[in-house]
Design a protein around this nucleic acid. Structure first.
Lengths: 209, 209
DNA sequence: GTTATTCTGTAGCAGATGTTCCAGAATCGT
DNA sequence: ACGATTCTGGAACATCTGCTACAGAATAAC
């Protein structure tokens, strides 16, 4: 027994994600948001309560549609070691073909807003930890199948791989070339290749796109 | 034949650095700056011209007093491979004992402002490249002295090491624990240890503080 | 001491910020 | 058709933004 909303909430959130992603939290005004979402300011406050609450929703939406989707898709499609390479390769490709230098919303937020808002900081850290957990799972699975050397500590290496992701996304935001991004990742990929017991020609893992 | 400035320009710039460092470019207002610097708004504009110009000066000041000082000091004091370990160790220590989660002004700026201002973006990228150059020099020198394996490509590895620095500083800003930061760096440090030609017990390089 | 020049505090500008208020429009159950 | 309830556009709020105008204070050369 009430008037129905005249806008698609999902599309609206996607527009909000895009705003925050491109310009950051502080530099995105509520009016920018409302215009991009195609609604008035009153509707925004009625539907989402607050700029900050809308940002929290946007983070969650981004995590679901971008990060978690990627992890699930890759984890399903590739065996463990290739999954790691595919993940890094995809991040690098995304970052290299990123004319607006948007980078990753989660990483951007980590530096932009997480330090000033403890709650958001915890949320961001938790999202980043999901990436680390993916690497951890893949490393353990790879060790079981023998794709990955048993000498590798998956707790340590998963943190290192998360670090590679962060570094790539930071450099991408400064407009770095693809070759630099690949150099950042290359040694980490080499590390998780099964080291030959007997000397044989080093085969470099192709970065999957 | 004119009135002298009533404030210490160096101290004032340091205060500005601190503001930008803690709160970022956008979230630091000219009034915040003026108050922290202990001067009036008019003096600020008279002496530095602009908020953006003051930021450029602050970046340079920070680079000189923090990054370049560290590089010069470490490069002078340690042999190549230890210099790399010492640099990473110092970054980690700084980041672990950073109650305000300030991180690194250059890295913060890379995400905060570099994407919206091409000029600042180039400046930040250039500063970051100085870190990479330091790693490159150290790797080459280490190869000459035999501390570092000749199989290591210093162009690739220097980018990777820069990546570790970036990752540590990003994670530090989200309040990560020291153990996580050390995990991020550990595999990179292991990589630049001279690999034994004959099997012998792996010795881990201590992270120099 | 005069004078030219530079500095400094205060006040103010126009515009943007996050948020709220309110009258009216649209919907649903009855 | 009615009433209760929810949504919507626009105007308005107080505050903040970067920046400037201006009058006066402090200096250094003469």
């Amino acid at each position: 027994m009430a008037r129905t909303k005249a806008f698609d909430e999902d599309r609206a959130i996607d527009a909000a994600v895009d705003c925050f992603w491109t310009h950051g939290y502080e530099a995105t005004s509520v009016r920018d948001l409302a215009q991009a979402m195609g609604i008035g300011g009153a509707s925004l406050y009625n539907a989402y309560g607050d700029k900050r609450e809308l940002f929290v929703l946007s983070l969650e939406r981004y995590a679901n549609r971008s990060m978690r989707e990627r992890i699930a898709r890759i984890e399903m499609r590739y065996p463990p070691r290739q999954a790691i390479a595919a993940f890094l390769g995809e991040i690098i490709s995304r970052s290299a073909n990123d004319p607006d230098c948007k980078g990753c919303l989660l990483v951007n937020s980590a530096l932009d807003v997480a330090s000033r808002d403890a709650g958001l900081g915890k949320a961001v850290a938790s999202y980043l930890n999901e990436i680390r957990a993916f690497f951890g799972r893949s490393l353990e699975a790879g060790r079981r199948t023998g794709e990955i050397a048993g000498t590798i500590d998956s707790n340590v290496m998963s943190a290192h791989l998360l670090g590679v992701v962060l570094a790539v996304r930071v450099l991408a935001r400064t407009g770095a070339k693809r070759s630099l991004l690949e150099s950042v990742a290359r040694p980490a990929l080499d590390l998780i290749e099964r080291p030959a017991k007997t000397r044989r020609p080093r085969k470099r893992s192709k970065i999957v796109n």
